[in-house]
Every structure is written in C-alpha cells, then in structure tokens.
C-alpha cells in the first residue's frame, strides 16, 4: 500500500537516510524502532512527504507521490546525456548504468530525452500529495492540535474544507468519535485547556475523521506524562484490533511487541533488521540491534 523505494535524505551535510526501501501492506502494523538520531522519524515523515526525500520515490496504492527518481528507472538513465557520453567512451550498457548510479552522476541538465521519459512516468502514475495525505493520517509527538480552534473545529476543519463531508456529516462523525473516547464534553474547549493524553487522543481521532487507509504515528507517547501513556496506547491498540493499517515509530518496546505485525530496526540511515515481533525480540541477528535491545529491554 505504501511503498518506499531507495530513499535518501540529506539535511545540509548530514545524511539521515541512506537508501531505505520498505513496503507497508494493507492491514499491517509496522513498528519502527531505533536509537535516537537513527532516522526513524525522518523515514516516517518521508512517507507523507512532510520531509521531501533527496533521492528515491514514495508510492501509495500504485501511484507515485514524489517526483520520479531517474536513478530508479533504467530507461531514464539510458536517455540521459551522461549515459550517452559514457557509451561513447566505450562502456557497455550495464557498466554505464552501474557507474552512473554509483557515482551519482546525473545532473539537472540531462537533456530533453530524459525529461521526456520522466514526464511520461509522471503522466501515468502521479498522484497529488495533498490527495495522498487524505489517505494517510498522521499523529505527532507534540499532538499539534490547532490552537486557534475548538476541539470540534479541529475535527471538522479538514473534512469540511476539502469537501469530503458536509458540515452536518462532519459534526456527526466527530461527535461519534468524541463519544468513543469519552471526551464529548470537551467539544467546545480549546486545546490549551486539555491534558496531554486528551490532546493526543483527539489528535488520533482527528486523523480518523478523514477515514484514512493508514495512520502514521510519530512517537505518539514520547511527550506524555507517564500516567497518560496508557490511555493513548489503549486507543491505538483498539484501532489495531479493528484492522487499521499503521506505521508506528515508538520507544515503547512492550507495546511494539504486542501491537506490531512486523518490526523494523533503523540505525545509521539503514533498515538493519526486519522481522515479526517474536523473532525480532527473541532472536535478533544484527549486532547493533542486539546491543540496542540489551540497553532498552
């Protein structure tokens, strides 16, 4: 459903992701763990393009949401000027493509032919990111409820403004969701009057109010007081049991083990290990993962 292809992300001179690929299937609950600074949040944020990857592509349901990456399309490489000059130098097709990929040779001015190939990919597969984001909800570490809007307005703004629902329908959905988490009496409050746990649960139903196909959780409990972690995890667990597709970045190892169907270990910008939870926690193979687990468990 969400497909990440060979993503690189550089901030200034720091490379945070160095060639990450992964597939998130419908109904899966993928948990991403890793040491701080490993790039796990960046990977999650690349999935809905809150961070734009430097190289690589993100696909949603077979549609391309990033710009096409010429390095991932041999046809595009073959249409480039650099390729032509390498071939003229006597390299074989295979060697030329390898050299271009390895040495990062493609520049902006590769001529009309390469652009034509890339434009064709865009024409066939492109999906506007604003449309794609409606299908991928996001829950942030800092909740990020809209401070200038009441709880009810937070829940109805996007569905109504994007024309997905009428105002009445949106209020009806929001009311049902608020009853579900037991916070209907807070509907006219501003976020500044809510506790952290309440804010985060409302942030989760704000994502749900869009009827997304998947929800991305970026360390949803890291900014919470310990006594509020439980209520948020309970809600996420409920959604998991209903079959919602999820990608969760978290430090809660017990929760990862319990809820995840697959765990990814991200370290130094790579996915170092990837396994179902039982195998991941009981029988880790990667050296860095063993070290990491021995510290956190």
């Amino acid at each position: 459903m969400i497909s990440v292809k060979n993503i690189y992300k550089n901030f200034e001179n720091v490379s945070v992701l160095r060639g990450v690929s992964c597939e998130i299937e419908k109904g899966e609950r993928v948990v991403i763990i890793g040491p701080s600074g490993s790039g796990k949040s960046t990977l999650l944020r690349c999935m809905n393009l809150l961070e734009e990857p430097t190289y690589g592509e993100v696909w949603l349901d077979g549609k391309l949401v990033t710009d096409p990456d010429p390095y991932l399309h041999p046809d595009a490489i073959r249409a480039s000027k650099t390729y032509a000059s390498l071939i003229a130098d006597g390299l074989t097709d295979d060697e030329a493509i390898k050299k271009i990929k390895k040495e990062d040779l493609l520049q902006k001015r590769e001529g009309k032919q390469m652009k034509a190939v890339l434009d064709k990919i865009v024409a066939e597969h492109h999906l506007d990111i604003n449309i794609a984001r409606r299908k991928m909800g996001m829950v942030f570490q800092q909740f990020n409820l809209f401070n200038n809007l009441t709880v009810m307005e937070n829940l109805t703004l996007a569905p109504v403004h994007l024309g997905l629902k009428t105002k009445e329908e949106a209020i009806e959905t929001a009311t049902a969701l608020l009853h579900r988490i037991g916070l209907y009496d807070k509907k006219d409050e501003y976020p500044s009057r809510l506790s952290g746990g309440q804010k985060q649960r409302i942030a989760i139903i704000r994502a749900l109010a869009m009827n997304p196909d998947a929800i991305l959780f970026d360390e949803p409990t890291s900014a919470l007081d310990p006594e509020m972690v439980g209520e948020v995890l309970d809600l996420i667990r409920e959604l998991a049991n209903e079959g919602m597709t999820m990608v969760i970045v978290t430090h809660e190892m017990g929760f990862a083990h319990e809820v995840g169907t697959r765990i990814l270990f991200v370290d130094e910008g790579h996915i170092k290990e990837e396994a179902p939870p039982d195998e991941f926690f009981k029988n880790p193979k990667d050296v860095r993962l063993k070290e990491f687990l021995s510290k956190v468990l």
């Binding site: 809905n48 604003n130 449309i131 942030f140 800092q142 809209f146 401070n147 996007a158 994007l162």
Partner: peptide, 15 residues
C-alpha cells in the same frame, strides 16, 4: 507560530 501547526494542517491534506 509553531511549525507543528503547519505540519498538522498539511498532513491532513490541506494546501
């Protein structure tokens, strides 16, 4: 204004 406010808006698909 906290950048998170913008991110939350964009993440919901708002322009």
């Amino acid at each position: 204004v906290d950048i998170g406010q913008t991110e939350a808006g964009r993440a919901l698909g708002l322009t």
